Simulated scan of single mutants.
Amino acid sequence: MKVVATDIPEILLVEPTIFGDERGFFLESFNAREFAHNAGFSANFVQDNHSHSQRGVLRGLHYQISNPQGKLVYVVQGEVLDVSVDLRRSSPTCGKWVATRLSARNRSQVWIPPGFAHGFLVLSESADILYKTTDYYNPSAERCIRWDDPELAIDWKLQAAPILSAKDQAGVLFKDAELFE
């Protein structure tokens, strides 16, 4: 496993070791000991989630103001543009974002620590995203920032208007969002 820091050093790109031959491939999608060794910290995952979406679906930008979740995100089918936004007031990168292409082809994962909003846009015909979280889903703590917030100015690489849920359409602007200390 190889772990690479992004432009926001706490957001990590995780590249698993892949063993392949004419039959196919094998990889460990998660190994706690290897993750801790290569990332420099341990993550205690308590919940696994699976999201399936069609091309053009944009989910996010989501976070939980209490029970904040760290996430390890992995695409098992398709391709997405995965976006993380720093919501930590005390951070020099507060309000900055990182976008990563995750796909079944590159098999990369992204680690998003607590204190960040998360979203993704499906670039392929459909996509299946698996992600581990470090805390449980808490609907009363869930918050959403608008995907198209002009202050964040995220380049989603859109080809057409995205498909959004009602919740995502009602997201707040970054300037009005509840942030972490």
Rank of each mutant, 00 (worst) to 15 (best):
W97L: 01
W97T: 00
V98H: 00
V98A: 01
V98G: 01
A99F: 09
A99G: 08
A99C: 12
T100A: 13
T100L: 13
R101N: 12
L102I: 14
L102T: 05
L102S: 09
S103R: 07
S103L: 11
S103I: 13
A104W: 09
A104C: 15
A104T: 12
A104Q: 13
R105C: 01
R105P: 00
R105N: 00
R105E: 00
R105T: 01
R105F: 00
N106P: 13
R107T: 08
R107F: 11
R107D: 08
R107I: 12
R107G: 06
R107Q: 10
S108D: 11
S108K: 08
Q109P: 08
Q109I: 11
Q109W: 13
V110T: 13
V110E: 10
V110P: 11
V110C: 15
V110I: 15
W111D: 02
W111K: 03
I112L: 04
I112Q: 01
P113R: 03
P113C: 05
P113N: 03
P113T: 02
P113Q: 04
P114V: 05
P114N: 06
P114E: 05
P114M: 05
P114H: 06
G115N: 03
G115Q: 03
G115C: 05
G115L: 03
F116Y: 15
F116L: 12
F116H: 12
F116T: 12
F116W: 14
A117N: 04
A117W: 02
A117D: 03
A117K: 03
H118M: 04
H118L: 05
H118P: 04
G119D: 07
G119W: 06
G119V: 12
G119M: 09
F120T: 13
F120M: 10
F120S: 11
L121D: 01
L121V: 03
L121A: 03
L121N: 02
L121R: 02
V122I: 13
V122G: 05
V122P: 04
V122K: 04
V122T: 09
V122H: 06
L123D: 08
L123N: 14
S124R: 13
S124L: 09
S124T: 14
S124N: 14
S124W: 11
E125K: 06
E125G: 09
E125A: 08
E125R: 08
E125M: 07
E125L: 12
S126D: 06
S126A: 07
S126G: 06
S126L: 08
